[in-house]
Computed example of a mutant assay.
Amino acid sequence: WLFTDYEMRAADQETIGNADAIGQVFLGENLAGRLDCEPGSTLNLFDEPFKVAGVFQSGSVWENGSMIVPLQQLQELTGRDGQITYINVVLDESIEAIQVGSVVERITAVDAKLLPLATDEFVRSDTRMQLAGAMAWMTSTIALLVGAIGTLNTMMTSVLERTGEIGILRAIGWPAKRIAGVILCESVMLALLASVLGGIGASVLLQLLAGSEATGGMLQPTIAMNVWVRGVAVGLGIGILGASLPIWRASQMRPTDALRHQG
């Protein structure tokens, strides 16, 4: 069986009740592929056999890598009889975002021990999400610093190697602004080329990781357009930043000093 996310949520209670009785589980399509299981297969959980009753498909990558086990059986397996950790409440589509607060208040009124959180608030307060966000920011910061230093080194070397040429251009009447514009255009072109090649490389690597057994079902093998735009914008920023020092050095260079350096 292959269920969509909505069909799975709408599965009748009789099927779930039977799962409680005969020990059945439902697997997300990515998890089923990694475990090489199909409907009718037997899966061992905590040394107990369970029958794979079906494979479901969701719009969420994480849900496609998950397993649905009847609550009573899961409580018995984990030794937490009568206990639950989370309850996901799906609001009706007719409820607007500004009404979420009132829904949270009504849930709190049911039992003071409940701690209802909207999705955004839950993500912000979850330690795992915070850790993942901090790691992503740290990695991005290091990558930006490495990129800026690499661009600066490349452009600085380019200016030093062409010191004599810059002196000749200044001697025949090129203003410092024009030379600075040439260096800036070169840096921007290199940054654009690097952004495009880096984006293509990232896309290919993402496809490979999404198709591997170790990370399959954990990554979305697509890059959104806004991510591409932000990547190009960051690349341009690094290109401009990396060209700033070489531009300043070239603009301060006197024709006589540049020609003497060439000689």
Rank of each mutant, 00 (worst) to 15 (best):
F3C: 09
T4F: 03
E7V: 11
R9S: 08
E14I: 10
E14K: 08
E14D: 11
E14R: 14
E14C: 07
G17Q: 08
N18G: 13
Q24E: 14
L27E: 05
L27A: 11
L27Q: 08
L31Y: 05
A32I: 05
L35N: 09
L35I: 04
D36A: 15
C37L: 13
C37M: 15
L43P: 08
L43K: 00
N44I: 14
F46W: 03
F46Q: 11
D47C: 07
D47F: 00
K51N: 09
V52A: 02
V55H: 06
F56Q: 00
F56I: 05
F56D: 01
E63V: 11
N64H: 00
N64P: 09
M67C: 04
M67K: 01
P70V: 02
L74F: 15
L74Q: 09
Q75S: 10
L77K: 07
T78M: 14
T78W: 09
G79N: 04
G79F: 03
G79H: 11
D81R: 15
G82K: 02
Q83R: 13
T85Q: 15
N88M: 12
L91W: 06
L91A: 10
D92L: 13
E93V: 07
S94H: 10
S94V: 15
I95Q: 12
Q99C: 03
S102P: 01
V104S: 10
V104N: 04
R106D: 11
T108Q: 15
K113H: 13
K113T: 15
P116A: 02
L117N: 06
L117E: 12
F122R: 04
F122S: 06
S125H: 09
R128M: 13
A132P: 07
A134V: 11
W137A: 10
W137C: 10
W137H: 06
M138K: 11
T141D: 03
I142R: 00
V146W: 00
G147L: 01
G150C: 00
L152P: 03
N153Q: 15
M155Y: 04
L160Y: 13
R162P: 07
E165A: 10
I166R: 06
I166L: 13
L169W: 05
I172N: 06
G173I: 14
G173Q: 08
P175L: 14
A176K: 07
A176D: 15
A176P: 00
I179L: 08
A180H: 09
V182D: 09
V182C: 07
I183G: 00
E186S: 07
S187P: 06
S187E: 04
A191E: 02
L193C: 07
G198R: 02
G201R: 11
S203P: 02
L205M: 10
L208D: 05
L208A: 14
A210H: 05
A214K: 06
A214W: 08
T215E: 03
M218T: 07
M218V: 01
L219C: 03
Q220M: 04
T222F: 09
W228V: 12
V229Y: 05
R230H: 08
G231S: 00
G235E: 03
A243P: 05
P246E: 06
I247M: 14
R249F: 13
A250P: 02
Q252Y: 08
R254F: 01
P255V: 01
T256K: 14
T256C: 06
T256R: 10
A258E: 04
L259E: 00
L259T: 05
L259V: 08
Q262K: 04
G263I: 12
G263S: 13
